[in-house]
Amino acid sequence: ETGKELVLALYDYQEKSPREVTMKKGDILTLLNSTNKDWWKVEVNDRQGFVPAAYVKKL
């Protein structure tokens, strides 16, 4: 879809709370919100949640 910003997972991340999502290094995720410098909201496999901003980079 146009207008979607994507990020690349630089590291594996295992969710530690229900508000977070698990990702694997190399995953491409849809970026939903990056206003917080530490935690970015992403969508992966129809799930939305937060990942550490340092673990992903914008494509």
Rank of each mutant, 00 (worst) to 15 (best):
Q48K: 11
K16M: 12
V21N: 04
T22E: 04
G26W: 07
K58F: 10
K57Y: 10
F50K: 02
V21D: 00
D27A: 08
E1S: 15
T35H: 11
P52S: 02
E20T: 08
F50A: 02
Q48L: 07
L29R: 01
T2R: 10
G3N: 12
I28G: 01
S17K: 07
K57S: 10
L10S: 03
G49Q: 02
Y55I: 06
I28N: 02
F50N: 04
S34L: 04
G3M: 14
K16L: 09
N33H: 07
K37L: 10
W40G: 00
E15I: 06
L6R: 10
V51E: 01
A9I: 02
G49I: 05
S17E: 08
P52L: 04
T22P: 06
Y55C: 10
P18K: 09
D38H: 15
R19K: 11
R47M: 07
K24Y: 12
Y13R: 02
P52H: 02
V42M: 02
S34H: 08
L6V: 08
W39F: 07
L6C: 11
T22A: 07
Q14N: 14
Q48W: 08
P18A: 12
K4F: 13
E20D: 05
K58C: 10
V44Q: 15
N33C: 12
E20A: 07
N45I: 12
V7L: 12
R47V: 07
S34F: 07
A9Q: 01
W40S: 02
G49K: 02
E20H: 06
T22K: 04
L59G: 04
L32A: 03
R19V: 09
E1M: 09
L6S: 07
G26S: 03
V56G: 01
V44P: 00
P52C: 04
N33S: 13
K41N: 06
R19F: 12
L6W: 13
V44E: 04
K4Y: 13
V51C: 03
Y55K: 07
F50V: 07
E43N: 06
F50S: 03
Y11D: 07
E1Y: 04
R19I: 12
Y13W: 11
V7F: 07
E5Q: 15
A9V: 10
E5K: 09
G3S: 13
L10P: 00
K24Q: 09
L31W: 01
L59K: 04
V21C: 09
E20G: 13
K16V: 08
V44C: 11
K4H: 12
Y11V: 11
E15D: 05
N33G: 06
E20S: 07
K57P: 01
Y13K: 01
A53N: 02
E1Q: 14
K37N: 11
W40I: 04
V7P: 00
L59E: 04
E5N: 11
N33E: 14
Y55E: 02
K57F: 10
T22Q: 04
D46V: 06
D27T: 08
L8S: 05
R19C: 15
Q48C: 11
L29V: 07
T22W: 05
F50P: 00
F50Q: 03
N45L: 12
N36F: 08
E15L: 07
L32H: 06
K4D: 07
W40H: 02
S17L: 08
A53H: 03
M23L: 09
K24V: 09
K58V: 12
G26R: 03
D12S: 09
L10D: 02
N36L: 08
Y11H: 10
E15A: 15
K25H: 06
W39G: 00
L31Y: 02
Y13N: 00
K24D: 04
G49V: 04
K24I: 08
A54T: 11
K57R: 14
K16P: 04
A54F: 08
L6Y: 15
K37G: 09
K25A: 13
D38F: 15
E43W: 08
A54L: 11
W39Y: 06
V56C: 15
S34R: 08
V21W: 05
A53E: 03
E5P: 10
Y13H: 04
N45H: 14
N33K: 07
E43G: 08
P18Q: 09
A54V: 09
R47F: 05
K24A: 08
K41M: 15
A53P: 04
T22L: 03
D27S: 08
G26C: 10
V7S: 03
V51A: 03
R19E: 12
K58G: 05
N45V: 11
V44D: 11
K25G: 05
V51R: 00
N36I: 06
A9S: 05
V51I: 09
D12I: 02
L29G: 12
L8I: 15
V51G: 00
L59V: 10
Y13A: 01
P18I: 10
K24L: 08
Q48P: 05
A54Q: 10
K4L: 13
G3C: 15
L10Y: 03
K41W: 14
L6A: 06
I28Q: 05
V42E: 00
T2C: 15
W39T: 02
K37M: 10
N45A: 13
K57E: 11
V56S: 01
N45E: 13
P18M: 10
R47L: 07
L32G: 01
Y55L: 13
L31P: 01
K25L: 05
R19D: 12
A53I: 03
Y11N: 09
A9N: 00
E43S: 11
S17F: 06
E20L: 05
Q48E: 10
T2W: 12
V56H: 00
W39M: 06
L10W: 04
V44I: 15
E20W: 04
D12W: 04
A53S: 14
P52A: 02
V21Y: 04
V21T: 05
P18T: 10
K25F: 05
S17R: 09
K58N: 07
V44N: 15
A9L: 02
D46A: 11
S17V: 04
E1R: 09
V21A: 05
A53W: 02
T22F: 04
K4M: 11
L31T: 01
V42L: 04
L32I: 14
E20K: 04
D12R: 03
L8K: 07
E43H: 06
I28W: 05
T2G: 14
P52M: 03
N45G: 15
L10G: 02
K57C: 15
W40P: 01
G49F: 08
T2K: 12
D38E: 12
